[in-house]
Design a protein around this nucleic acid. Structure first.
Lengths: 129, 129
DNA sequence: CTATCTGCAAATAATTTGCATGTAC
DNA sequence: GTACATGCAAATTATTTGCAGATAG
């Protein structure tokens, strides 16, 4: 396995595009964004690089947002809200209460991280439905 | 589409087996459990019934627990903790702080529900690693 | 009876992987 | 130069679906 990592053109563009947006795109959507600058990039490369970038902590892999994984260029800890109708994912602002999760008790587990995801309806779906 | 629902032998056994355990099994694990009582049941039937039961509120579908969905016979609202090593899912006991999520603000969304999932290491993995 | 459900097998969707070639360092 | 990365296509994994026969109510 790789013991070192290289900043290839593909990896750089993926990271740049992901940091540009706050839409928490799926791998597929990242592929579409990146393809505008690198038309010959493959979806496999996008998946591989998103994993490498998540591993190195440069992006966040949201494994908790529906059936497809989503990616976030904002690596500060923050909570998400997902639209139950269209699947869109947004940011939740005042998450200071997450701190209170320190008191959580889970018999048989040692807790290392807390993921909080809200579900709701986005304004667009509210209007169109 | 179905406008009515029937309590078939398969559906009954799936619900019974799911309520017996607190292990939050995947569809595949439910299939294994149920097959001991109904050897000719198919995996497709298990998926279909888990969806019907989730729809009717008799079981909980945990879409936030890793890449595979997991199912929970305990429909009381409670939070979960997932082992980052083996993927096992447990219950978190004192989740009263979830109430404080009422104060959450998400621009562009109307929040309807909160999912909290913790990540950690279970005692087994702690010992074996 | 008949609408719903089942088993089976094939289809789909998301993601991962093998391999020959390309490239960062 | 060489270990890591890429593009492509095929493989895998989880889940869903079409259909003909079975069954709950």
């Amino acid at each position: 396995m790789a013991v070192q990592t290289r900043m290839t053109k593909q990896r750089k563009v993926i990271l740049e595009e992901l940091c540009k947006v706050t839409t928490h795109p799926t791998a597929d959507e990242v592929y579409d964004m990146v393809r505008q600058r690198l038309p010959r990039i493959s979806l496999g490369t996008v998946y591989r690089n998103l994993d490498v970038l998540a591993e190195s902590g440069d992006v966040l892999k949201l494994e908790h947002a529906g059936s497809q994984k989503r990616f976030d260029g904002n690596t500060n800890p923050h909570a998400h809200v997902r639209c139950s109708i269209c699947g869109k994912v947004g940011d939740v602002m005042n998450v200071e209460y997450i701190a209170s999760s320190q008191g959580a008790v889970a018999p048989g587990f040692t807790i290392h991280a807390a993921y909080v995801e809200f579900e709701g309806v986005c304004d667009d779906c509210q209007t169109h439905n």
